[in-house]
Structure formats: C-alpha cells, structure tokens
Write a protein that binds this DNA or RNA. Structure first.
Length: 912
RNA sequence: GCGCGCUUAGCUCAGUGGUAGAGCACAUCCUUCACACGGAUGGGGUCGCAGGUUCGAACCCUGCAGCGCGCACCA
C-alpha cells in the first residue's frame, strides 16, 4: 500500500488552500478595492494610445439599481474592459442625473409625511436646501451599487447634472438658443400634470388604452325650439367651457345648421354651430363640442374660427366655474359624473356607452394629463437635417438597425419642445424680467425673439450670470426639463463652457452609447442635435439599444407589481460575476428578455466550474508551468489549444457585431465542454503519480497556456473571478492585474499548419466520440457506473493503440484491447465507432430477449433513414441540380446507414 | 388606422437554404480523491397557420392568426 509518499513535501495538501466552492462575495470586494487603489480605471487624456470612450447614461441620483441598469452597465463595462485589453486608452465617464420631477416628488412626499408640510410652506430656498440634503444623503447609493457590480468607471471624473460647471453649460446653451431665436416663450396648449402641477413634454405623456364612457347628449337649437343637435363626448365636465359646436361641412343633417346658435345647458349660453373638416363624419353623431381650453383639436379649431377660450379647470384638475357653485371646486372625475347626472336631469342625456379610447397619462404621476393652455418656454430644435442624416447615412450606427426607422420618423415629425417646468428642483431658466414691468411681461402673449431680439428688448435680461443690478430684476421662476441638461451629457461632462479641454479633444466623440430604446426621443435624438450644435460634432459612433427586461409572464419590471428582483440580493446570492454572466447569456440582440433567476444561478455555477478547474490544477502546485514545444504534444493538447485559438479569433468578429449573448455562450461552451468535460478528463492520466515527468509537464503547460488566455477572454464578463484566479495561478506578475494585460498577439498554435492542427483535432475528436459510444453501450446495459467493464476493438485504426489508456479513462473502463481476431460471443453488445468496431464482452449476462427487441427497434429506425435517403438520391432533380458536395455527402450518409444496418442484422442473427 | 417586432422542446432562448440545438426542468444511474453550484446516459419538437419560390425551407416571398411595442387630432 505504501508504494508512494503520503504527501509530497513541495505540495503540502495544496487543495486545502481553496474552499470547495467558489465564494464570490469577499473576492469581489477585494478586487474592486485593488483596482481602485491601483488606478486601473483612470483615463489618461494625455495618453498616446488610441482613445475609447463611453459616457454612462446617468441614472437618477436618488435611484436604486434595477436589472435594467445591471444589463446596461454590464455591457458598458464589457466594452470598456475589452477595449483596454485591445490596448486602448479607455474613458468610461460616470455620473448621475438630478431627475427633476422624480427627485422633487420624493422630497415633497417625505416632507408631507414627516412634517405635514408642502414645499410652499418652506419656500423655494429652504426647499432646495432640503433637496440637496436628500441628494447628499441618498445620492451615492446607486454609485455604490454600480461599483458592487464591478463597473470600471473613471470615478475621478464623476459628474452630476447640477454641478456648477454643468449648470453653466445648461444656461449657456439656453442663452445661445434664445439669442438665435430658437427658444421662445408663448401661451400654448401643453400637457399638464395635475398632480406634479407642471407642464410636460409630449414624450412624457404615455398613451394608455382606457375603458371610458361615451356620453351622447343633445343641445337645443335656439331659433327652432324642439330641434336638437346630438353630440358625443367623453368629457361632459368641460361643458362649461364649450364655445361652439362643430360639424363636418358635408354632414347630411347638420350641415344646413351651420351658422345657427344652440343653447348650452349650463351655464346657459348661446353658442354657434360652425363647420370644420377636422370633424370626423363617421365618429359618434358627427358633431363635436368645442372646448378650446381643454382639448388640442378644439384649440386648433377655436383658433381657426376666432373663438373665445374659457378655462374651467384649476391647475390641480378641479373645476373652476364660480358661476356654477355646485361644480366649482369638484375634482374633474367627480364633476364628470355630476355633469352627466345634471344633463340627465335636464332630459338632455341620450345615452352612455362603454368605450375604449386612448388617454394620455403623466409618466411620473401616473394620472391622466390635462391639455391646458399656459405660458411656457419652447425650443425649436437645432440641426435637424444634419442629425436626421447622421443616422440615415450610417455615420451613427444604431444596433439593432431597425431603431433607425423609429428615429427617422420622429425626426421628420418634430414638434417644438416644451422645456419649462413649474418645479423648483432643476436648472432655473436664465431669464430676468425688469421689475417695473414685470406684470405685463409675465403675461405677454409672446416673447418670441425671432421677432424681437434679446438685445433690443430693454425689459428682458437673458444671461448665464445674473444681471449686474439684480435688485431691479425678477427671475423667471420655472426650471428646465431635466432632459434639457441630459442632452449635453457627452460633451458637458468633458469640458467647461467655452473650453476645448484635453479630455474633450482626446475622448470626444465617444465610441459607443449603450441605452434603452425607450429613450430614443428623450435622450438619444436630442444628444445628436446638441452634439452637432454645441459639442463640435456627433456625440457617438454607435448606439447599442439593450433589451427591456420583463418578468416570466412578459410584464415590465415594476415596483408596484413587486416582480422586480433586487440586483443586490442576486449579487449576495450569486455574486456580481454570476449576475453579469447569467444576464448577458440570455440577453438577445434587440428583443425583450424574460428574466429568470435560474439564469443567474447558472452564472454562479459557471464561476464555480471555472474555479474548480483551477483548483484541480493547483493539486500540482501553482507555479506557472511553461508550455513545452507544441510540436509533438498529445493530440488532446493540440485540440484544446486550437479550440481556444478559434474561440479567441471568433470573439473578435462577434464583438465587432455587438452580439454579447453569443460571446457569453461561446465562452461558456469552451470552458465547460471542450476544456472540462473533454480535455481535463483526458489528461487526468498524465497527472497521476505514475505518469512520466514529460507527460505531466506537457499537461500542466497546456493547462496554464490555455487557462491564462481563457481568463483574459472571460475577464470582461466576469472581472472578479478571473482576476482572482489569474493571481492565484500566477498568470500575472505580482502587483499586476489581468485587467491591464493586453490580449496576446499570436495564437498558441501559430507555428502549426492548418493540416497539422486538423489532423490532431480529428484524432482527438474521434477518441471523444468513441468514448461517448462506449459509455452509451454501458448505460444501455445498466452498467453506467461499473468500472470493471472491458472493451475489445476490431478493425481499429492504426494509431489507436497509443490512445487506449485515454480512451479507457474516458469510457470508464478497466481495459480496452485491440484484437482483430476477436470472435464475439453471440449477443455481445457492439457499436460502430470512428476508430473501429467496439465490443463489450458480457460473459453471457445480458438478457437476450431484451437485446433482440432493442436491436429490432434500432433496425426499424435505420430502415426509415435509408428509405428517406434512397428516395432523395433517386430523385433526378436532386442529383442533377444540387451542389455536388451535397450529393456526395448524402451518398456517404446512405453508405453509413447501410453498413450499420448490416451490422445490426448480424447482431440480431447472432442472438438467434 | 399606420409602422415595427415576436411566435422553435414543459420554461428561457440560439439557430440567414443542406441530418432541428443549448441551458434549466424531467427520468435512470453515479456521493470515482476539481466541481452535487458536479458527472454519465436518456426521453421530449408536424419550428404559429396556409400558400408560393427552390432539387431542398425553421430560414426567402405572400397572406392570415395570436402576442407585444411604438406612432396618430377619433371627440
């Protein structure tokens, strides 16, 4: 028993150094700290290296990480880390967004709940102080979470959209566009949120299919009592604001009444019937009540016909109609029922029907918005033509490409952007009104500077700095839409106003933008326009649109549904690497993804597999083993190296196409199938005590050569575990990092000819396949776990004798003999393999009847195949017109089937 | 209404004209000294439906259906 030393002095039980299962938590934290410490993420704007840059889509400063962020930022981190490996100088610029409405709403809610106060109770200055406090307390949560994920951002350059320098940029852009006449103020119909009490842009309104009621009512003609015009509406509560009834000029019944007056029931008034082609003849009764203050179409019609505008709603959505005390102050939805009831009481309500229509909701407050006329600031977009063309021509490449169409459609139908918000948290509009004249300026119908230039308007001051005599001026109270700062992000984060910084010169334009398709309009399109106008050119070259993550039922992740797993919990359980890898592996290009925790578990398992493969290697120590000359190495080594070379080469192409899921899949398959299941099993003999020193050196050398490169390839996806293992296996010099290592220039098998590689590959593949066939034989006879099974090979290929040990090891067999004179006893299980006929002597233990049944079944299957194949080859059109190699392949197949069929027939015969 | 996308194994998804795939789940076996977060073997699919093109279609074309998402001034 004691024929070997109990332990080798140089490797005193090395396995004990590593826990059996990989435990990511401590490892991940350790490496992130080490990278920061060593400045691995810092971008050098003076570097000679080729630049590569990404700006992060800034998350809301008080937000918390969700799976969408994880996917999005994992992709950016992968791109950044890969670019560093390619020898580029990488800037991944991080930061956060002040998120006007969202943040202000949070603070207001807290204020209400804790102190029972509103923001107006505090006043603007005090309230803003509270928001800043809130930001300072909660603002770095998401940043910490991104760090936990392993994001390699240059944190020394972190920006916030409300930083002083950034704010100067926002103001400057406003001033420039104002002076150019592209920004104007005016009374327009805007989307009003009755909860947030602010105007919104069209993009912030979400149309939702809603079940509404369509009320049909009748108005009496003033001149001919007893005659009525019928009108349908979903909004009877705005009836008090009706100023006309519109009908289509070709309406068969009502057209004749155009010009007559009808009686508005309450408050009673006479309003005209007008004719307008915008009225749909088909819809409802073909007559439309016109409430210019509360509907976009009505507003247009009203303007055309010079109608009065009667606003019957307060900003908070309650009725404003002192003439009708019973309605005055009622909520709009309560008033709707009340108005219907009153119409019914007056005998004017004809019917109510259930009706499905689209209602615009406020994105943030999730309540129906109110079309409302109010004084707002608007922007006519700059650089529209150039920006449209940039994407159409491919100067900016969208991936997937189809989003370019969505972009083009939006660009072609641009509406002026309402940029003012009636909030306090944000960039205040840099416009001051002369105090003396404030009231008239405040209500001036238009301050459109395309007609009146700023310079010639003595009562208006527009500037980045406050006026020199502030006591004489009153500043506009509104702030700007958050996106009015976001659209400057790619260059305003890299420079100060008017400055052509070295960072900007080196890193602008950025290479890739990674974001969700839901903000093409909000952000992507506007950044392109701003980039052209203010950044000095296109802001990015590629835009990668990520998948939207849904739950298993296909619903969007949302807090209220509670179907959104907390990424931090997932990282606690499975590690950041596991989460990243799992998510990347299922994220398809362009389509939505249904998230399943199981995929994250897979990612964790994968990290564990990798860890254990290295742990196995460490049984032989962790000194880096140099690779012996590759010529003359066993075919298994050549094969695994060529697979790795192939993987490395293929990844270049797949990265170029941004197919991140496929990269993960390929990395997974190589490690698990090619490396662990096949190669590592095949070389176990070479690592036994009994193996020769040469064999051991070759195996260890191959392991280290392949694994060290593989860890590099995997690093962008699983940065922590690859760093940990590279250190433990001494693949990087002490104090160095795998993340800083550039990819090797030459493949492992650079000195091999294609033919040599192929020959080795074929041999190795033949052995692996044969091993599978032999295991299969064992399993069919329920001997899967038996180690004492022997095989006999007949008609074996010449080289097989050298590989019998490996084959036996892989097949789980004590012995494999090559014996052409072997006469199989009747009923001996047999299989055709790429290296010869294999027999599994059973010494008469098998159930002959069962075996006959099995073989008969297989013969049936195979006959079907043969018939199919013969039929195909008997078709003249196929033989004549298909490519020769396809026909040859088919013939070869048929021969194979026939041979097997004959063998099976013999076996069946033998059993008789 | 217009546009876009999706439909492949029980589930999540690969698969761009040549023998239908992976992971999970399932079944059987294996706690063999890298890994049970593991290994081995296996069962499971008329590729949404109907036409067409082609020697050959999951793949290309047409139509239809179902689902999802954008856009739109249907009160």
């Amino acid at each position: 028993m004691l024929d070997k030393p109990q332990s080798l002095p140089e490797h005193p039980n090395p396995m004990s150094e590593l826990a059996k299962a990989y435990e990511p938590q401590a490892v991940e934290e350790k490496w992130y700290a080490a990278w920061l410490e060593a400045g691995c993420f810092r971008a050098d704007e003076n570097s000679e290296k080729e630049a590569y840059s990404i700006v992060i889509p800034p998350p809301n400063v008080t937000g918390i990480l969700h799976l969408g962020h994880v996917l999005n930022n994992a992709i950016q981190d992968i791109l950044a880390r890969r670019a560093r490996q390619e020898g580029k100088e990488v800037l991944w610029l991080p930061g956060t967004d002040h998120a006007g409405i969202a943040t202000q709403a949070k603070v207001e809610r807290e204020l209400r709940e804790k102190e029972g106060k509103t923001r107006r109770d505090l006043g603007r200055d005090e309230f803003l102080k509270r928001v800043w406090d809130f930001k300072n307390t909660h603002g770095d949560i998401i940043i910490k979470q991104l760090k936990r994920l392993g994001c390699s951002c240059d944190w020394s350059r972190e920006r916030f959209t409300m930083d002083a320098e950034y704010t100067r940029w926002v103001s400057q852009v406003f001033v420039d566009l104002f002076n150019e006449g592209l920004i104007y103020r005016g009374k327009r119909m805007v989307n009003w949120c009755p909860v947030s009490l602010t105007a919104l842009s069209d993009e912030e309104v979400i149309m939702k299919a809603s079940r509404s009621k369509l009320f049909t009512m009748k108005y009496e003609l003033a001149e001919s009592p007893g005659e009525f015009i019928h009108i349908s509406t979903t909004r009877p509560e705005t009836l008090m604001g009706d100023v006309a009834i519109a009908v289509h000029p070709k309406h068969p019944k009502y057209a004749q009444w155009i010009g007559k007056m009808v009686r508005r029931p309450f408050p009673e008034a006479l309003i005209p019937i007008i004719g307008d082609e915008m009225v749909d003849l088909e819809f409802g009764t073909g007559a439309l009540k016109i409430t210019p203050a509360h509907d976009k179409v009505d507003f247009e019609i009203g303007k055309k016909h010079g109608l009065e505008i009667i606003d019957v709603l307060h900003p908070d959505g309650t009725i404003n109609c002192p003439a009708l005390p019973e309605f005055h102050g009622l909520d709009r939805f309560v008033a709707r029922r009340a108005a219907a009831a009153k119409l019914e009481e007056m005998g004017l309500l004809i019917g109510i029907e259930e009706y499905e229509n689209n209602v615009g909701y406020s994105e943030r407050a999730d309540v129906p918005i109110e079309p409302r006329i109010s004084m707002q600031w608007f922007l006519r977009y700059p650089e529209i033509a150039k920006s449209t063309d940039a994407v159409a021509s491919g100067d900016i490449q969208f991936r997937p490409e189809r989003w370019a169409k969505t972009y083009a459609h939006w660009m072609e139908n641009l509406q002026d952007w309402c940029i003012s918000r009636q909030l306090w948290w944000g960039h205040q509009i840099p416009v001051w009104y002369r105090k003396d004249n404030f009231e008239s300026l405040k209500n001036a119908e238009s301050l459109d500077t395309s007609h009146t230039s700023n310079k010639s308007h003595p009562d208006l001051y527009v500037g980045v700095e406050p006026p020199a005599d502030p006591e004489n001026w009153i500043r506009d109270e509104d702030v700007m839409d958050t996106w009015f700062s976001s659209w400057l992000w790619p260059f305003a984060t890299m420079s100060d106003v008017g400055e052509n910084s070295t960072t900007l010169k080196k890193f602008y334009p950025t290479a890739d933008l990674v974001t969700g398709p839901d903000i093409i309009f909000f952000w992507v399109a506007r950044m392109i326009m701003a980039g052209y106008r203010f950044g000095g050119g296109l802001p990015f070259k590629n835009v990668y649109f990520t998948s939207i993550i849904r739950d298993l039922k296909g619903r969007k992740m949302s807090k209220s549904l509670g179907n959104s797993p907390d990424p931090i919990d997932l990282m606690d359980k499975f590690g950041a690497d596991g989460l990243r890898f799992g998510l990347m592996r299922i994220a398809p290009v362009g389509a939505d993804v249904r998230f399943d925790v199981a995929t994250v578990e897979e990612g964790r398992n994968f990290a564990n597999k990798l860890y254990n493969a290295c742990r196995f290697r460490q049984m032989d120590g962790n000194e880096f083993a140099p690779l012996p000359a590759v010529k003359g190495l066993p075919v298994y080594h050549i094969q695994v190296m060529s697979k790795l070379d192939q993987l490395a080469e293929d990844l270049n192409g797949i990265y170029a196409e941004y197919r991140f899921g496929e990269i993960a899949q390929r990395l997974y398959e190589f490690l698990w199938n090619d490396f662990c299941d096949k190669w590592l099993e095949a070389v176990k003999a070479d690592l036994r005590e009994s193996a020769t020193a040469e064999a051991r050196a070759a195996a260890l050398g191959t392991f280290d050569a392949v694994m060290s490169r593989y860890l590099q390839l995997l690093h962008p996806y699983m940065p922590h575990v690859t760093e940990e293992l590279s250190e433990r296996m001494n693949y990087v010099a002490s104090g160095e990092f795998v993340m800083r290592k550039t990819l090797p220039e030459k493949p492992l098998l650079a000195e091999f000819s294609a033919a040599e590689t192929e020959a080795a590959q074929k041999q190795a593949a033949a052995i692996y396949e044969t091993a599978g066939r032999l295991r299969n034989l064992k399993a069919e006879y329920n001997l899967g776990s038996r180690k004492d099974v022997r095989f006999v090979m007949k008609g074996a290929v010449a080289w097989l004798s050298n590989e019998l040990n490996v084959l036996a090891l892989l097949a789980g067999s004590t012995e494999i003999l090559v014996d052409d004179s072997y006469e199989a006893p009747k009923g001996t299980p047999a299989a055709v393999t790429p290296v010869g006929e294999a027999y599994m002597p059973m010494e008469g233990l098998i159930d002959v009847e069962a075996e006959r049944v099995r073989i008969s079944r297989e013969i049936e299957k195979m006959r079907i195949e043969v018939t199919k194949s013969e039929g195909k080859l008997g078709t003249a059109s196929f033989v004549d017109r298909a490519p020769p190699e396809v026909v040859a392949q088919e013939k070869e197949r048929l021969e194979d089937w026939k041979t097997k069929l004959a063998q099976l027939g013999e076996m069946l015969e033998a059993l008789r």
